[in-house]
Design a protein around this nucleic acid. Structure first.
Lengths: 228, 228
DNA sequence: TGGTCTTTTCAAGATCTTCTGAGCGAGACT
DNA sequence: AGTCTCGCTCAGAAGATCTTGAAAAGACCA
C-alpha cells in the first residue's frame, strides 16, 4: 500500500488531508513540526510527502532538504500560501515535485499527488487518462473528449467532472462535491454545485446517452443510463 | 540508465539540479567537495559530471584533472560564475566538455547536458532536433523553422519554445515555465511569461494554424488546434 | 562611449470564469 | 386545485486573468 506523510502544523487541516487520503486507499502518517517530519520520513518510509512550507520550527524547503540529505528521493507536494509563490518557493515545481496553493480543494490535491506518483513510480500502470464509456479525461492535457468530440471545460468544470469520473457508479452528495471540488474554506452554499452540474450536462451530455444522473435527495452519479 | 554526478558545495543548488535530472530520467549522485567528487567519480561511475568550478577545497579544474588522471574520459559540464573570464574557462571545454554560467536556467543546463551526451555517446539515437507539426527546433544551431520558413528568436524566446515543445500536448503552468526557463534565482513575477508568450505567438504563430494555446487559469500548451 | 538588441515592468482593455439569485417546472402532500 | 419543496436553467455582476503596446532598464558589441 502506498504511504503518504502529511506535514502541517494546523491539526484540522492535516487531519482533513490525511482522512481524505486514507479514503483514497493510501496509508497515512501526520507530522506537526519539521523535526517530526524528518524523523517520520525515516521511520515511516513514505512514498510521498505532503509538506506545508510554513512550519513552526523549520521552513518546509529546509525539511525537504534534510530529508533528501539522508539519501531519500521521496517526492514532495508542497502546500504554500498564495502570496508565498512570489519569492519563497522558487524551483519547487522542479523534478518530480509539485506544489498546491492554500486554500486548495482536496480533489485538486489528490489529483496532483496521483500525477506525481505516476511520474515517479514508473512501474505504475496508471496513465494520466481516465475513461468512462465514451468519455475520456486527459489529465495532463486538461482535455476532455466525448465520443471522439472535444469538450471545452473551465477549470472548475474539469475538476467536477474528474471527481464524478473518479467515483463513477457511486452517488456523491452535493455536500461531498462541495467538500472535495471546492476549496476547503469555501463559504458559499451548494447552489453552485447545481449550476456547475448544469454546465457540465450542457457540454458533456450534449449528445446521448446522458452520463450525469441526478439521484433525488441524495446527489449525482456518473453512469450509463439503465434500461428500464 | 545514464548516471550523472552533480558537484556543488551549495546544497540547495546541488539538490535542485539533481532533482531536475532525476525527473529527466537520469540517475544522480551528489558531492559537496572536490575530494568527494574524485571519490564518487570512481565508485559511482558517472556518464557525465556537472562540476562547479568554485569548490571549498579544490578548484573544479583540478578536480577534473585528477579524475582524468585516473584514465577516465567522462565528459564534464562546468558551472562557473558569470565574471569568470574566458581565459579561466577557455581551456575547460576541450573535447566533449561544455560550461554553463551561474545563474543558469534548468532548461538550459539540461539542454547542454543532452548536447554533450549526444556528442560523446555516439550510440545515442537522439538527435538535436525537436519537431512538432510543421515546427522544427534545431537545438545545436539555435534555429527554429515554421513551415519551412526560418523564425528568428531571442535566447529567452528560444528556451521558452523549446520547453513548450518538450512538453507538447501537456499543459504547463506559468510557474513551471518560470522554474525551468528562467534562471533559478529569478525573483520577478510571472507577468514576463505572458509577455514572452505574446512574443512567441507573433513570431511562431504568424501563420496558421496556431500552435501555442492558452488554457485560462491553468497555463499554456503547444498543440494543434482542436477540430470542432 | 554610444547604439542596438534584449529583457522586464506596467497598465488599459478585452476576455473568461465564478458565483448568486430569481424564475420555472415537476412531483408530493393537503 | 392550491401549496410546498426540490432541482434545473439562465442572466448578469463581480472578479480574476490574459493580451498587447509602450517604455524603462539592462546587456552586449563595436
Amino acid at each position: 500500500m502506498i504511504r503518504i506523510l502529511v506535514v502541517d502544523d494546523e491539526p484540522y487541516l492535516a487531519d482533513l488531508v490525511a482522512t481524505a487520503l486514507r479514503y483514497e486507499g493510501f496509508e497515512t502518517a501526520i507530522a506537526g513540526t519539521g523535526a517530526a517530519a524528518v524523523s517520520l520520513a525515516e521511520t515511516f518510509g513514505p512514498d510521498l510527502i505532503v509538506l506545508d512550507v510554513m512550519l513552526p520550527d523549520v521552513l518546509g524547503t529546509e525539511v525537504c532538504h534534510r530529508i533528501r540529505a539522508t539519501g531519500s528521493e521521496v517526492p514532495v507536494v508542497f502546500l504554500t500560501a498564495l502570496d508565498a509563490t512570489e519569492d519563497k518557493i522558487g524551483g519547487l515545481t522542479v523534478g518530480g515535485d509539485d506544489y498546491v496553493t492554500k486554500p486548495f480543494s482536496l480533489e485538486e490535491l489528490i489529483a496532483r499527488i496521483r500525477a506525481v506518483l505516476r511520474r515517479t513510480q514508473r512501474a505504475s500502470t496508471e496513465s494520466g487518462r481516465v475513461t468512462f464509456a465514451d468519455l475520456v479525461i486527459e489529465e495532463d492535457a486538461y482535455e476532455v473528449w466525448r465520443g471522439g468530440r472535444r469538450v471545452d471545460l473551465t477549470p472548475t468544470e474539469f475538476k467536477l467532472l474528474r471527481f464524478l469520473a473518479a467515483n463513477a457508479g457511486k452517488v456523491v452528495s452535493k455536500r461531498q462535491i462541495l467538500d472535495y471540488v471546492w476549496e476547503y474554506d469555501f463559504g458559499g452554499n451548494d447552489g453552485v454545485v447545481q449550476t456547475y452540474i448544469s454546465y457540465l450536462r450542457r457540454k458533456v451530455d450534449a449528445f446521448p446517452p446522458p452520463l450525469i444522473h441526478t439521484v433525488p435527495r441524495v446527489g449525482y452519479v456518473l453512469r450509463l443510463p439503465r434500461e428500464d
